[in-house]
């Protein structure tokens, strides 16, 4: 886990395209009369985890779904690897807040479902699914159904399904908000490990400041009405530290405080 991350100065000087997996440029979104996003621009460095952090209702899910191609922006555009997004694509996979598992299908079929929709042959997709089921720590539950699993285990299924399609960009919408606190901490540790191993670009929505600081390479703070990126924070020093000690680290605590200071005025 304590693996060196891409150097920030390199990211900035080496210029755009190859370093940035996803670029959001001037995106606006209005729902009827509700202006959810206004002229939002943000870059997501390849191989890193970027958190979208902000109070609820500030447009985090909206932005994530626009990147996923599930929603059309009212204005602006999103590029993934230099290609404009026009809809969902195999380069992105989504992890849903409420898991979105098929209740009538086993864990194995759920994890393989993305591959099934892509027409991958049964034996092949089940072999891949089994690999990722093991990876998220659910070996032995292949034949179980979602309603037989705890919330935390269900989200592991959702995560394995997203990993199994081997998309470059993983979009996670508050994936840990529906699981209990202990499970959540374990998830956060596992996520750091996953970012280090998988060389994928993670876009992670959360409303928890601690969680964002704990897991992120880059935190984009979104402020509401209409939403914009107010600040980008890179807790770089933390990424080289041992995960077990991060929560006691003074840099960690400083960043948490700093973010709270800028968010508190938006919470009544």
């Amino acid at each position: 886990m304590a693996m060196p991350q891409t150097d920030l100065s390199l990211v900035e000087t080496a210029g755009a395209a190859p370093q940035m997996a996803v670029r959001v440029r001037g995106v606006s979104k209005t729902y009827g009369s509700v202006e959810a996003l206004r002229n939002l621009s943000l870059d997501f460095p390849r191989g890193q985890l970027t958190s979208l952090l902000g109070p609820s209702g500030c447009g985090k899910t909206t932005l994530l779904k626009i990147i996923a191609g599930l929603l059309e922006p009212t204005a602006g555009e999103v590029e993934v690897n230099g290609h404009p997004v026009t809809g969902p694509g195999p380069d992105r996979a989504f992890v849903f807040q409420d898991f979105a598992l098929l209740p009538w299908a086993t864990v194995l079929r759920n994890v393989a479902f993305g591959l099934e929709l892509r027409g991958v042959a049964r034996s092949e997709r089940e072999a891949i699914a089994e690999k990722y089921i093991a990876k998220v720590g659910l070996s032995g539950f292949e034949k179980s159904y979602p309603h037989e699993l705890s919330g935390g285990m269900r989200q592991r299924v959702g995560l394995a399904r997203a990993l199994a399609v081997d998309a470059e960009v993983l979009l996670m919408d508050e994936p840990f908000s529906a699981v209990d606190e202990q499970t959540r901490r374990k998830f956060q540790e596992d996520l750091l490990e996953l970012v280090a191993q998988e060389r994928k670009t993670f876009i992670f929505v959360t409303h928890s400041i601690e969680e964002a600081v704990y897991v992120s390479d880059q935190i984009a703070i979104l402020l509401p009405r209409p939403s914009r990126v107010s600040e980008i924070i890179r807790p770089e020093g933390l990424r080289t530290k041992d995960v077990a000690n991060i929560r006691r680290d003074s840099e960690y605590l400083d960043i948490v405080d700093r973010i709270w200071a800028s968010l508190r005025s938006y919470v009544e």
């Binding site: 599930l70 969902p88 195999p90 996979a93 989504f94 849903f96």
Partner: peptide, 15 residues
Amino acid sequence: INRSLVEMARSFGAR
């Protein structure tokens, strides 16, 4: 149907 299931199918490219 839960909207997320519909979005899940779309996001994984269901025809």
